[in-house]
């Protein structure tokens, strides 16, 4: 049976169950308003390792282990690990996979990786190629700063649109909809959360070149994917309780709302952004959080738990990614962006 609908979307024949999640965050994220939703808060810069990169790797590995352990499935019962991170050659994910010994497909979608991996994971399961898939994404402030921006100790001011890379790793464990494990058997799992649709984003570039204004660069990609999702599935904004974007930040969110309004879709009352809710105001971060880990931990920690608790019944989770590198940016290229979306629903099957 052909499961693709419209130009860019897929509808799963049998909704794919999100069985459990694992989240590890750094100390600034741990002080934020979502702190109670995270599994592990690491207060040490390097978590006992000797570099920021190794710390991120450890977070990634632990996030996957936590999700798997909650589900009661053995590590070697997980068919594939899908995921990535922000560092060159996605070393965090690859080296964490070395420790986990799960067959691994590395993905790079910049900050959209969490949505990309859950979308692909769900497709593998619904296609009959897997029973259980782990999806994970991570980022680390210090490691990303070193690679993309300036040295940590270099004195200078943030621009008013600067976003802070979230230190954290989030993972999901996906399984067939026929898995009927209940919370009585495994107290820490999610009972009724399913992925039903996915929309694969196109690379969209509206010509923004300012690397300190990622939110504005990514907003058009988010708009494109969202409207495409509505068109492909025949759904409208009224069908959703929540449109949650990955890391547009406060200014990027404003631009997204505006772009959608220009096309006759009002999402303002239903939109939240992971980057806007992860940090507390006291940290004085100009425009909120960013990075693969941002949408990873907010989705894995916060969104799924709220869904399972009946606070929402249908969300469109859309993680956005800026696909540039410092090299192409220095060569004068604008910031190409992408957004992938998945419909996550509370279903009692």
């Amino acid at each position: 049976m052909y499961k693709k609908i419209g130009r860019q979307s897929v509808a799963f024949k049998e909704p794919v169950r999100i069985l459990s999640s694992g989240t590890v965050v750094g100390k600034n994220e741990g002080k934020g308003p979502l702190s109670t939703f995270f599994d592990v808060i690491v207060n040490d810069d390097m978590w006992g390792t000797d570099s920021f990169e190794k710390c991120e790797r450890k977070m990634y590995e632990q996030a996957v282990r936590i999700a798997v352990q909650k589900s009661g499935i053995e590590l070697n019962g997980v068919d594939y690990l899908l995921g990535g991170d922000l560092l060159n050659q996605i070393t965090t994910a690859s080296y964490a996979a070395r420790e986990l010994e799960i067959p691994f497909l590395g993905l790079y979608g910049a900050c959209s990786t969490m949505a990309e991996s859950s979308l692909l994971g769900a497709m593998l399961i619904d296609g009959g190629f897997a029973n259980t898939v782990a999806c994970a994404a991570s980022s680390n402030f210090a490691a990303a700063e070193r690679q993309y921006r300036m040295p940590l100790e270099l004195g200078g001011q943030d621009t008013p649109t600067t976003q802070r890379t979230v230190t954290g790793a989030g993972s999901l464990l996906l399984t067939c909809g026929s898995n009927k494990t209940t919370r009585k058997e495994r107290p820490e799992i999610l009972e009724h959360v399913y992925i039903t649709h996915g929309t694969i984003g196109k690379v969209v570039d509206f010509g923004i070149t300012d690397a300190n204004n990622m939110g504005a660069a990514m907003a058009p990609a988010a708009m494109d994917t969202l409207l495409r999702h509505f068109e492909d599935t025949g759904r409208t904004i009224d069908d959703y309780d929540l449109i949650i974007t990955g890391d547009l930040g406060s200014f990027g969110s404003e631009m997204l709302i505006n772009l959608c309004k220009g096309r006759g879709v009002d999402i303002e009352s239903k939109h939240i952004d992971c980057g806007n809710i992860i940090y507390s105001k006291e940290l004085n971060i100009p425009c909120g959080g960013s990075g693969c880990g941002c949408s990873g931990v907010v989705m894995g920690g916060y969104l799924l738990k709220r869904l399972d608790a009946c606070d929402y019944s249908r969300c469109f989770f859309m993680a956005t990614g800026a696909l540039m590198s410092p090299t192409v940016n220095m060569q004068g290229e604008s910031i190409a962006s992408i957004a992938h979306g998945v419909s996550i629903e509370r279903l009692v099957i």
Binding site: P160, T161, F206, I208, N213, F251, E254, M255, P286
Partner: peptide, 11 residues
């Protein structure tokens, strides 16, 4: 869009 971004950007 670029013009809008420049205008609305927090200063």
């Amino acid at each position: 869009y670029q013009k809008q971004v420049t205008e609305r950007m927090p200063k």
